Amino acid sequence: MRFHHLAGRVWVCPGDPDPAAVQAGVAVVADERGSVMIDAGQSPAHAREIRAALHAAGLPEPRWLVYTHHHWDHVWGACAWPGVEIVGHVTGQELLRAEAARPWSHRYLREQVRANPRLAPSFRARAFAVDSWDDFAVLPPTRTFTDSDELPVGVRLRHVGGRHAPDSTVVLVPDSGVMLLGDSFYPPPAHLREPDDGPDLALLRRLLDDDYDWYVDSHGEPMTLAQARSEAGAG
């Protein structure tokens, strides 16, 4: 696991390419005034690996941690990032407060899968990801916004919503020409997905902007503007 320089101040660290691992990639906007980490990792163990990769690349420690949305593979590592300000959409704050109240454990995961077998892929991945629940906690954002926000280091946040998650947020780094998409245009989560659900290409097309050269979603390779247009069917 290592960070790769993408453009300007933006570095990306890919997740596990095996879909069964449900491990999202993360990104860092490196700045001497304090870096911005985009998403937290899917577990404390994953977050510790990300921190080691951050140090190996010589990148500054994050001052802010931005959630692209509230799904577990993007936020469950937050408790291993002490001292950061967690930023996310207000809808995600409410959803994560409810998640934080659940009695997470391997036993609880098994009980939930027995009650709803469609949860099995996600909940089994969680069981593999978290080796100990002793210091585990789901952390809601401490700084929230509704439509948009801008951090002091020039990183912009825009709420886009969508069918994948109601709090989906894209992260814009204008000086680097990079847009971080999270899972915003993905179909609904597997346990909620219907057979005809697919990527929300209309949403992706709305996001394309000539001022941005790179588009990064959380489970794929970075795309150039031309590649993103092709992916979105925009010609």
Rank of each mutant, 00 (worst) to 15 (best):
203 L>E: 10
164 H>A: 12
29 V>F: 05
16 D>E: 03
141 P>R: 03
231 E>D: 12
99 E>W: 05
7 A>I: 00
5 H>A: 05
231 E>W: 12
215 Y>C: 04
48 R>V: 07
143 R>P: 10
34 G>P: 09
32 E>D: 05
136 F>H: 06
234 A>K: 03
101 A>H: 01
223 M>T: 00
44 P>L: 03
19 P>T: 10
186 Y>V: 02
14 P>V: 01
178 V>S: 07
149 D>W: 14
198 G>F: 05
57 A>L: 00
41 G>T: 02
120 A>G: 11
162 G>Y: 07
168 S>N: 15
182 G>F: 09
21 A>R: 07
146 T>S: 09
79 C>K: 01
89 H>G: 09
196 D>P: 05
161 G>D: 12
99 E>F: 05
10 V>Y: 03
118 R>W: 14
210 D>F: 02
144 T>M: 13
7 A>K: 03
96 L>D: 02
147 D>I: 09
234 A>T: 05
158 R>M: 12
93 Q>D: 13
234 A>F: 04
74 H>V: 07
170 V>R: 11
152 P>G: 12
192 L>F: 12
200 D>A: 13
149 D>T: 11
70 H>N: 11
234 A>P: 06
162 G>Q: 07
61 E>T: 01
112 Q>F: 13
43 S>E: 04
116 N>W: 14
104 W>S: 06
68 T>C: 15
176 S>G: 04
117 P>A: 15
128 F>H: 08
148 S>C: 13
92 G>F: 10
93 Q>H: 14
62 P>I: 00
168 S>D: 15
179 M>T: 12
59 L>W: 00
8 G>E: 00
23 Q>A: 11
228 A>F: 04
209 D>A: 08
6 L>T: 03
192 L>G: 11
7 A>R: 06
73 D>S: 12
